[in-house]
Amino acid sequence: MNACTVCKRLTPKERCDVCGNPTSSNWSGLLIITDPEESELAKELNITIPGEYCLRVR
């Protein structure tokens, strides 16, 4: 799995599905957002799309 270097979304691809930026395999921490409208943690990171995100990416 890779992580988007900009929005931190996880994807197996070379580019992010959502923002199109390059991804990296060097990431750590995992945040799964199932309901962004209800999640305070999602709001803290301005995440509006459900899915898997990393906490740190290089």
């Binding site: 750590s28 921490g29 995992l30 945040l31 799964i32 957002i33 199932t34 309901d35 962004p36 209800e38 999640s39 305070e40 943690l41 999602a42 898997e52 906490l55």
Partner: peptide, 22 residues
């Protein structure tokens, strides 16, 4: 975390986020 998130989505439990800090 991944299994739980799938369960949460199908069963309608009030889970909105799951955090796994390293």
């Amino acid at each position: 975390a991944r299994l739980l998130s799938r369960k949460a989505q199908v069963s309608g439990i009030g889970i909105s986020a799951i955090l796994v800090p390293e």
